[in-house]
């Protein structure tokens, strides 16, 4: 009994997947809101959705897809004992998360400066369908943004564990689960981008 720790790799990963399913249902609820109100207010959704800038949404799509590539490669790198490469890729992913949030900051600031935010006078003067669109937009992309920040924190914590040797080529499930969370963040954006930035133009 000299310090042997039982590792259940499959169980750890399956638990992460079960958590991700609840996340899918959470965002699924927000996409249902979008779909129901799109069916009810098609014209207002087009006039409000036309205000969103494809360059912000598209730029962030490229940032997230690339960051997902970095995380995926970092797992292979760690398992091949390329610890420095794995750490560098995780650092680059956190950089992508920062880039994503900076992009979002400029996008939202531009919206706010046009008076498009809940509670503003301009907002009160909009048609009900347009108000609904922007409310769902802020709710969905805001919740997604929180996930980006949490994902970056989890990846930074994983980097600390790799540095201390707690996560290594023989025991990498924490990195794999952190990666799964990050890919989920990417996955949700894959649906947000066309629905909010493309189809309403």
């Amino acid at each position: 009994m000299s310090g042997h720790v039982h590792k259940d790799y499959i169980g750890a990963k399956f638990g992460m997947w079960l958590f991700l399913f609840t996340e899918v249902l959470l965002f699924g609820g927000l996409f249902i809101l979008y779909a129901v109100y799109l069916a009810r207010y098609p014209q207002e959704f087009i006039s409000a959705g036309g205000e969103l800038d494809v360059r912000f949404g598209g730029g962030n799509t490229l940032v997230l897809l690339t960051s997902s590539l970095f995380v995926a490669i970092s797992i292979t790198a760690l398992r091949r004992e390329k610890v420095r490469l794995a750490m560098g890729l995780l650092g680059a992913t956190i950089g992508c998360a920062a880039l994503f949030m900076i992009n979002k900051y400029f996008e939202w600031t531009a919206k706010f400066s046009h008076g498009i935010y809940p509670g503003s006078e301009h907002f009160a003067a909009m048609k009900p369908g347009e108000v609904v669109f922007f409310n769902i937009y802020y709710l969905t992309t805001g919740l997604h943004g929180i996930h980006v920040v949490i994902g970056a924190i989890i990846l930074a914590w994983t980097m600390c564990l790799i540095r201390s040797g707690r996560v290594n080529a023989k025991d990498w499930v924490i990195l794999e689960n952190a990666g799964l969370y990050w890919h989920l963040v990417d996955l949700i954006w894959i649906f947000i981008f066309p629905l909010y930035y493309l189809v309403l133009h």
């Binding site: 997902s68 995926a72 990666g179 890919h183 629905l195 493309l198």
Partner: peptide
Amino acid sequence: WNVWVALTIATFKSGLVVAYFMH
């Protein structure tokens, strides 16, 4: 069809992410 085409492409993209990136 705008929405359906966009959703079909997004479904293909998420299929790739789930199958390969998410293993």
